[in-house]
Amino acid sequence: MSGTFTPAPGGARFARKVLAQAGMEFRLMLRNGEQLLLAIVIPVVVLVATVVGSRKLGVSLEGRAVDLFTPGVLALAVLSTAFTSVAVATGFERRYGVLKRLGTSPLSRTGLLLGKVLALLAVQLVQFTVIGAVATWLGWRPHWHPGVIALAAFGTAAFASWGLLVAGVLRAEATLAVANLVFLLLMAAGGVVLPTSTYGGFGTVATWLPSGALGDGLRAAFIDGQFTWSRLLILAAWTLIGAVLTARTFTWE
């Protein structure tokens, strides 16, 4: 038999499947207006507004505004993509049966997860490039410490594990609401853009949040060239809790 539909089953090579999935998710994220707003527009607006605003208002800072605020804006970018975008996208994938359909494709769950991680990292690369370019244009002169890579990686892992947890437990609409609310709350009070030391009493709590640990960690590294292990450990602990809870509660449909 050699008809059009003569069976020739088989899965593609693992790397090819993962790359296909990552490419697909990356394109869909860049095509989605709301996600772009969250991933690129809001962080850039926050950066320009804080730098230009503090210049115009003549706020006295212990250093140049662009150096003080850029690390926090990078942390905000990680928060927006790794937590909010991941939660919202996964919530709707579950709602619309995408996860279910991919569940009977040759792409394994590991492949799907890896594809998501790669897509996430690719989006972050775009974010960091854009934010870095705007900051450089505003006169950013950072210190470079290799620890920022580890901080960004663990920050991404921590937020993504909690994003998946929310998407796995709540309905898609509730996920959308919660993911955006948490984003706003952490942006305002989680030690992301502003150092936790500026919050007074709540600052102590904020240092233990993944947002505070990432924000303060990136600030210490980029502003003073310092690296503190405790912040990395806080992020690792949030990742572990998030991943364990996600593994226990996540459903594919």
């Binding site: 899965g11 090819r16 296909a20 869909l28 994938e93 619309y96 049966g97 995408v98 359909r101 494709s105």
Partner: peptide, 21 residues
């Protein structure tokens, strides 16, 4: 269901094709 809301029809088919040998 089974496809992303923003994916184009042929794009979805191309994607699934890439998962197969």
């Amino acid at each position: 269901g089974g496809a992303w809301g923003g994916v184009r029809a042929t794009e979805m088919l191309t994607h699934l094709a890439r998962l197969h040998a």
